[in-house]
Computed example of a mutant assay.
Amino acid sequence: MGYHVHIINTNSKGYKIINNFGVLRVILENRFNFIYRESNNTSMFCSNDDEDFTLFYSDNSLWANTTNDRFIIKMIEIAEYFDDGSRVRGDHGETFRSLSETYIHNDDMEEMINEVDQSHIKHFLYRYGGLLIIVLISLLIHTLIYIFD
């Protein structure tokens, strides 16, 4: 099972390198020594320095399926080099300042709260749904008996 790490930019204003594929490609190839490849309509950048480092490009983000600390550090370096608000976000919504320091970015906060709320509701309904139905039916029956008595 992998860990998905993304370089994204959720700023609503300003120029974003991640949205300009031509500039992105030049930076990754010339500054970070990646080679662009395309396979089955999938755009990817493979590192010349380490064959295990592959970044995939889709939906205006770069992503990797990795738990390799050195690769995550490289992704942080790339996002910082862009100097446009790009950041590295992990599977759990955490944004990396460094390998050892993460935080929840404001742009991700609402989404994460909604996910937590929905998962708690689903868990509650799964665990207590049957009991809840019995209680509601009992209340309905007692109400009808009270009304028609």
Rank of each mutant, 00 (worst) to 15 (best):
H4A: 02
H4N: 10
V5W: 00
I7D: 00
I7E: 07
I8R: 10
I8S: 14
N9K: 14
N9I: 15
T10G: 02
S12L: 10
K13P: 01
G14E: 08
K16A: 14
K16H: 14
I17H: 07
F21R: 04
F21M: 03
V23P: 03
V23R: 11
V23Y: 11
L24F: 10
V26P: 09
I27Q: 13
L28W: 09
L28C: 11
L28Q: 11
E29V: 04
E29Y: 10
E29W: 06
R31I: 06
F34R: 05
E38Q: 15
E38P: 02
S39K: 03
S39C: 09
N40A: 12
N41I: 00
S43F: 15
S43Y: 11
S43N: 12
C46R: 12
C46P: 00
S47F: 08
S47C: 07
D50H: 14
E51T: 13
T54E: 14
L55Y: 11
N60H: 11
N60Q: 13
S61R: 15
S61Y: 05
L62N: 12
W63V: 06
A64P: 13
T66S: 15
T66F: 03
N68T: 10
R70A: 08
F71E: 14
I72K: 09
I73A: 06
I73K: 14
M75G: 03
M75H: 01
I76Y: 12
I76F: 00
I78Q: 12
I78H: 11
A79G: 13
A79H: 08
Y81C: 07
Y81V: 01
D83L: 08
G85R: 03
R87F: 05
V88G: 01
D91I: 07
H92R: 02
G93W: 00
G93N: 02
E94F: 00
T95V: 14
F96Y: 15
F96Q: 03
F96C: 01
R97Y: 07
R97H: 06
S98Q: 04
L99E: 04
L99T: 03
S100A: 01
Y103R: 02
I104Q: 08
I104S: 00
H105V: 02
N106V: 10
D108L: 12
M112G: 00
M112F: 03
M112E: 04
I113W: 02
Q118A: 14
S119L: 03
H120L: 08
H120P: 02
I121M: 09
H123V: 04
H123M: 12
L125T: 00
R127N: 15
Y128I: 07
G129F: 05
G130D: 11
L132Y: 09
I133D: 13
I133M: 04
I134N: 03
V135N: 08
S138V: 04
I141A: 03
T143M: 00
L144G: 02
L144Q: 12
I145G: 04
Y146Q: 12
F148A: 09
